[in-house]
Measured scan of single mutants.
Amino acid sequence: MPVRRGHVAPQNTFLDTIIRKFEGQSRKFIIANARVENCAVIYCNDGFCELCGYSRAEVMQRPCTCDFLHGPRTQRRAAAQIAQALLGAEERKVEIAFYRKDGSCFLCLVDVVPVKNEDGAVIMFILNFEVVMEKDMVGSPAHDTNHRGPPTSWLAPGRAKTFRLKLPALLALTARESSVRSGGAGGAGAPGAVVVDVDLTPAAPSSESLALDEVTAMDNHVAGLGPAEERRALVGPGSPPRSAPGQLPSPRAHSLNPDASGSSCSLARTRSRESCASVRRASSADDIEAMRAGVLPPPPRHASTGAMHPLRSGLLNSTSDSDLVRYRTISKIPQITLNFVDLKGDPFLASPTSDREIIAPKIKERTHNVTEKVTQVLSLGADVLPEYKLQAPRIHRWTILHYSPFKAVWDWLILLLVIYTAVFTPYSAAFLLKETEEGPPATECGYACQPLAVVDLIVDIMFIVDILINFRTTYVNANEEVVSHPGRIAVHYFKGWFLIDMVAAIPFDLLI
């Protein structure tokens, strides 16, 4: 008679799926529990143990900040960024110097990925580790590398530091407007667009060049630039800015003055950032001319202004700041037409079709709590990747769950009947059967004279019903998954307890 339990259901295979997918890609990662103190490590794979030199037993239950890997060259700011990422709910990448158990130093890129439950609360953290440099290539500990984003994938490793954006290309926007319009339909740009040429040739750093990471940081200074100062900065030398009595002219307006920039070969870094931020506020060169004239017309309804409409929906549905990093990277690809469009465009503009998908598509409701890094690593669709929660398995109709209350009560009843059979069957065979043979035949009273025979008949009927119930009862397979398919249940029961239950259900007393 089957006594099969499996009270692990309803099970959740999400954690096993993450481990299996990460292991298949030869990654070095740990999984931490966000619900406990210090976000203790609950799993670390073999790749991480080989990377740091510690065994799994030495890593388990330690804080996922990996303070046991810190050393003299470990930056405090990087460690603080990892700790801050564990307090938030967004994906974050941090470069930090770690030390192995043998004392060797290596520069590592740590990717902190939160995993949320159905309520939107962070319950786990996945920390992925990628070695960037070994100890002989690690720089000085005073050099802070965590304020910069990861290198873009479309640049060669040897040319990542030679990417320079020439400031004269930004200063000569109005001069290039006529050349853009003359391109017409034969050019790649839309009317009114501004073409910015980027020099990728390796050259020595000069005062006129600005690194790509500095251009990325310009967006942080746009908020500090007032509207009046932006307007004066875009007017140009024809209309000098008016300053109040006793007030000095704005240095932001002076930063885009061609006369002032041409007199000296070098520009201050602050002026460069502010000038680029001011130019980015204009949607095209037409807006710059309109600002000089004193009238700013409404933005025209053409394809170039609607190019950012799908980007707005993608940004609203993005799951991490990696989408913004990807957008900034692609927006700086050289030799393309940049349409400086305000994100607050007309909502009635139709979304044009684009061959290049900048932001990841909208994630469906079932995966809105899973970050983009987890979705990318697992390579699963929205119909396959579940949320991290207890999910009731989908069972067929008329199927009994093996952990249901009805099955528990039924098993206790069958257990009592088995005990009765084990006690009274030998007793009936030894004593009652002998008395029946010696006594007179009682054929007239039937079952009324033999109450134990009636009980034995009921017990046999219950055993037959138990066999039928076992054909529709779920079970737990070797992978700790609840199986509810009727065919698989029948095959599993035939290979197991079916023969024993059938022999126990045969009414031998009635056959004798």
Results as ranks from 00 to 15, higher is better:
Val3Tyr: 09
Pro297Met: 05
Ser354Gly: 14
Ser239Ile: 07
Pro168Cys: 04
Ser379Thr: 07
Leu210Cys: 05
Asp323Ser: 08
Gly236Ala: 12
Leu380Val: 03
Arg159Leu: 14
Leu311Arg: 14
Ile19Cys: 04
Cys44Gly: 01
Asp46Lys: 05
Ser313Glu: 07
Ser104Gln: 09
Val94Cys: 14
Pro251Asp: 13
Gly6Val: 13
Ser55Tyr: 01
Asp102Ser: 06
Asn38Phe: 04
Glu130Asp: 08
Ser209Val: 13
Arg176Ala: 05
Gly192Arg: 01
Asp286Phe: 05
Ala89Leu: 08
Lys161Gly: 06
Val41Asp: 01
Asn33Ser: 10
Leu165Ser: 14
Arg20Ile: 01
Gly262Cys: 04
His221Arg: 12
Trp154Cys: 04
Phe68Asp: 01
Ile330Asp: 05
Gly226Gln: 06
Arg77Asn: 10
Arg92His: 13
Pro300Phe: 01
Ala277Arg: 06
Lys166His: 07
Leu87Trp: 13
Asp67Phe: 05
Val279Leu: 11
Asp346Lys: 07
Ile363Lys: 07
Ala172Tyr: 01
Val194Lys: 01
Gly120Asp: 14
Ala253Val: 14
Leu267Gly: 11
Cys265Asn: 13
Asn369Ser: 14
Ala244Met: 11
Thr371His: 04
His221Trp: 10
Asp321Asn: 09
Ser320Cys: 13
Ala34Ser: 13
Arg273Ala: 14
Pro334Met: 01
Asp342Thr: 03
Leu173Met: 13
Pro63Ala: 13
Val215Leu: 08
Ser178His: 06
Leu170Val: 05
Glu372Ser: 15
Ile42Asp: 01
Glu230Gly: 06
Leu167Val: 09
Phe98Arg: 01
Thr270Met: 07
Ala268Phe: 07
Ala142Asp: 06
Ser322Leu: 07
Ala360Phe: 03
His368Gln: 07
Asp323Arg: 07
Glu95Met: 13
Ser182Tyr: 15
Val195Met: 03
Arg148Pro: 12
Arg252Asn: 05
Pro298Leu: 07
Pro240Asp: 13
Ser313Lys: 11
Phe48Pro: 01
Leu324His: 14
Ala169Cys: 05
Leu167His: 15
Arg100Leu: 01
Arg312Leu: 07
Leu109Met: 06
Gly6Ala: 11
Phe340Tyr: 14
Pro361Met: 12
His7Thr: 05
Gly103Arg: 13
Thr367His: 11
Glu177Pro: 14
Ser313Cys: 14
His302Ser: 05
Leu343Ile: 10
Phe129Glu: 01
Cys66Lys: 01
Glu372Asn: 14
Pro202Asp: 14
Phe129Ala: 01
Asp144Trp: 06
Leu315Glu: 15
Pro299Ile: 08
Gly120His: 13
Leu127Gln: 01
Leu385Pro: 10
Lys373Gln: 10
Glu230Met: 07
Met60Cys: 05
Gly53Met: 06
Asp16Lys: 07
Asp287Gln: 12
Glu208Trp: 03
Ala188Phe: 05
Ala303Pro: 07
Leu225Trp: 15
Tyr43Phe: 13
His7Gly: 07
Gly183Ile: 14
Ala223Tyr: 03
Pro168His: 06
Ala360His: 15
Val122Glu: 06
Lys373Val: 12
Leu225Phe: 04
Ile30Asp: 01
Thr162Lys: 12
Leu316Glu: 13
Pro297Asn: 04
Ala228Glu: 05
Ala190Gly: 09
Ile19Thr: 05
His7Pro: 14
Asn45Cys: 04
Arg4Lys: 15
Val131Phe: 06
Arg164Met: 06
Val195Pro: 06
Ser263Asp: 07
Lys373Met: 12
Ser209Pro: 05
Ala307Gly: 12
Phe14Met: 07
Leu378Pro: 04
Ala169Ile: 01
Ala193Asp: 12
Pro347Ile: 04
Lys362Asn: 07
His147Ile: 01
Ile330Trp: 05
Asp323Lys: 08
Ala282Gln: 15
Val41Lys: 01
Ala172Asp: 14
Asp286Val: 12
Gly236Phe: 15
Ser351Thr: 05
Ala32Thr: 03
Leu311Asp: 14
Gln11Arg: 14
Asp323Ile: 03
Leu324Gln: 15
Ala303Leu: 12
Asp213Ser: 06
Leu51Trp: 04
Pro334Ile: 01
Glu37Asp: 08
Thr375Pro: 05
Ser304Gln: 15
Phe125Val: 06
Gly47Asp: 05
Ile358Ser: 09
Phe68Met: 01
Gly238Gln: 07
Leu107Pro: 15
Ile31Gln: 01
Ala172Phe: 01
Pro297Thr: 09
Gly381Gln: 07
Gly183Pro: 09
Ala40Asn: 07
Cys64Gln: 01
Ile330Ala: 11
Ala89Val: 13
Ala193Pro: 05
